[in-house]
Structure formats: structure tokens, C-alpha cells
Simulated scan of single mutants.
Amino acid sequence: MKHVLILLLGVHLSYATRHSLQYFSTAVSGDSSIAEYTEVGLLDGCEFMYFDSNIMKAVPKTEWIRQNEGADYWDRVTQRLINNHQVDKNNIQVAKERFNQTGGVHTIQRMYGCEWDDDTGATDGFFQDGYDGEDFLSLDLKEMRWISPVQQGVITTQKWNNDKAMLEHYKQYFTTECVDWLKKYLEYEKRIHEKPVSPEVSIIHKDSSSPVSCHATGFYPCKVTITWLKNDQEHHEDVDLGELVPNEDGTYQRTSKLRVTPDEMKNNKFSCVVEHQGKIVTADEIRTNNGDSVPVGIIVGVVAAVVLLLVAGIVGFKVYQKKKGFKPVNSSDNGSNSSSSQTAA
């Protein structure tokens, strides 16, 4: 019979101090199979807003933003992102001319936002643009000047660096307005969850021909790591990590599936390690002796006990994606926290 062994490997005491508000956008030309423009907003690495040019609508992705912002807010965000889409379409054409390109698939990518340390009060901002996966343009907030690593971007940096009003505008946005929205969103989030919530973990193996699933759900904040071990060594082959999915109560869920043959299950020990907020739980999957479906129940008791030891700690954020498109963004006076496009390169 299948059973699960839970082991506490350690609890790391760490306190959440550094928070981030990030926006990622991608504009594409020459590929009709995907949306021409997408943008996502993330708070401490967790997606809370999504837009693409197919649905032409900004939508909430978390309960805390859904409960605290109404239709007017989303209408304003939608109009801003529709404008961004149009500006980036023009920017791709400008870039193609500068790089002497005609056809083909081309992309503009952008990452911008701010950080705030709630312990020291320190803040920082960032803005990075890329074209076809390579760095194109970025804002040096300390020196308050635009820089480019490629010759094709120099004409843009010269133009923007000579616009002192524009530079002051960006300084105000990244040092003040963005941080204000970050703090506001953190307050929204606290109304849903005052403290971190530990995940409930389950291992499910339907039959010998099915993948083994390690499912973590009900956790908050969204950062969780799911790792498979084979004979106590990290195992990355034949592993499929599912998307992070929000639950209706503001928590999250995620599943990792391991494809393994009956012989591998028989001759090896596979374990699932789930880490959340410094707490590590190991679930040992004991192989079945027959092909019947034997679901392993949700691990509630141990997790509930562990939660008493849990101390808040934001693990940090992973900057995934190369960098963003190559037009600037404006600070928002329309009720959304993200800035909007001002001019083409």
C-alpha cells in the first residue's frame, strides 16, 4: 500500500522586507498565431494583472486586486494598454528600419517597475528595453540618463536625454508614484491575508501508466518551489512543472508531474520536496504493488503544525524574460500604478 512520510528539514527565520512591483510587456510583429501585444503586472513576483491585444481588456488575476479596484480602474488600464499596443507597433517598424530588416518575426520587450524595502525605506526603480531578445535601451536612475549598448539605440538616447522635462517625469514616477502604488497594493493584499499560509500537499498516482503528481495548494504568498528527488538526489528529467494558479480565496496552487516507468518506481525511491516561506516538507512516494488507483491524501496535520513555526519571508523575485520593448513609459495619472507609453523611439 502507498503511504507518505513527511519530514521537516528546517525552518529558516526570515522577514519580508524587500517588495517589488514589476510590469512585463511583449510586442510581436510577423507572427499571427500569438497576440501582438501582452502585458502582465506582478507584485512580489505574483501576477495580479493581465492584458493582451486579442481580448483587448485588462483583467485581474488575484482576489486582492479584484476586491479593491472597480470597473473604472480596469477601463483606464485597458485604454492605456491599447495605446501601448499601437505605439509599440510603430516602434517595431522604426527598429526594423534601423536594423535594415524587412520581413520576419520581431519583438519588443520591456521590464519596468520599482522596489521598496519596508525595513530601511530604501527604494529603487528600473526600466529596460530589448529588441529581438537583445538589450536595446535602459534608464540609469542614479545618473538620470538613458543608455544603449547598440548603435541603433543611440539616436533614441540622445533625443530623450535632451528632454529634461521627460527625465524629471520618469524620476518622479520611479522614485515616488510607482512606490506609492506598490505600498497601496501591499495593503490590498494584507486585507486578504494578514500572514503567510502554508500549502496543503498531496501526492497522487492514479496507476502505473500515469505520471506521479505532487500538488501544493492553499498557500500564500505565491512563491513555492517543488523539487523531485531520486534516491535523495535532485531529479530534473521527465518533470513537468505546471503553471501557478490562483484560488478563489486569494491563495495559490501548483502541480509538478513526474513521468516514471513502473520499473523505475520499483527500483528507486522518489520524493517530492515542497518549499514555501523557508519551510521545507518532503513527501516520500512509496511505489504501489498493483495498478489500482491509490490517491494519497492531503497532508493537513503536519502542515498545520508547521505553520505555527512559519515566519514571513519573501524569497525575492525571479526576473524572467529578456528585457522589454523600446519605447518609454509614462507615469500614470489615470488611477493605475503602471506607467504608459509616451512616444515612439
Rank of each mutant, 00 (worst) to 15 (best):
D119Q: 15
V4Q: 10
Y252H: 02
G121Y: 08
K183P: 02
P199K: 00
Q86F: 14
T261L: 04
E243R: 05
T62L: 02
Q321W: 12
P221C: 01
E69K: 07
Q172P: 07
D207T: 00
Q101D: 15
I92C: 07
E97W: 10
D140K: 02
K323S: 10
E187L: 08
D140M: 00
P149Y: 07
L182A: 01
V315R: 12
T26R: 04
I226H: 03
A95S: 09
S293G: 13
P199A: 01
F174D: 01
L258E: 01
C46I: 12
Y37C: 04
K327I: 15
I108D: 06
K184Q: 07
H276E: 03
S209H: 05
E168I: 06
E177Y: 11
M144I: 09
D240G: 08
S339F: 12
P196V: 02
A345Y: 12
V224D: 00
G316M: 00
L8F: 07
D118E: 13
S256H: 01
G291S: 10
E237F: 08
I155V: 12
Q152R: 09
F270R: 02
L9H: 12
K171S: 06
V329E: 06
Y50T: 07
Q233E: 10
D292I: 05
Y15N: 15
D124G: 14
C178D: 03
M111K: 13
T227N: 04
K279R: 15
T261G: 03
Q152F: 07
S271Y: 08
E36N: 08
V273K: 05
S33M: 03
I286F: 13
C46Q: 10
N290V: 03
D238I: 06
A345V: 11
L8P: 09
T217K: 13
I92D: 05
E264D: 04
L241P: 01
I92R: 00
T123F: 09
Y252K: 00
E200L: 13
P221Y: 01
H276K: 05
V40M: 10
V87M: 11
L139P: 00
M56F: 14
E194H: 09
E234G: 08
T123Y: 09
E243A: 07
F317K: 14
K257L: 11
E234W: 10
S341H: 03
H193S: 04
S271K: 12
M1I: 10
T38Q: 05
D119Y: 15
M144R: 10
N90T: 13
D240R: 09
Q22I: 15
D238C: 09
E115C: 14
L241N: 07
Q151R: 14
T261C: 03
D140W: 02
N290H: 11
C114W: 06
S336G: 08
Q22E: 15
P221K: 01
S340K: 12
R76P: 05
S53M: 03
C114F: 09
V212W: 03
K195N: 13
K327W: 14
P328G: 10
Y50P: 05
V197Y: 00
C272R: 01
P262G: 02
T288Y: 08
V201I: 15
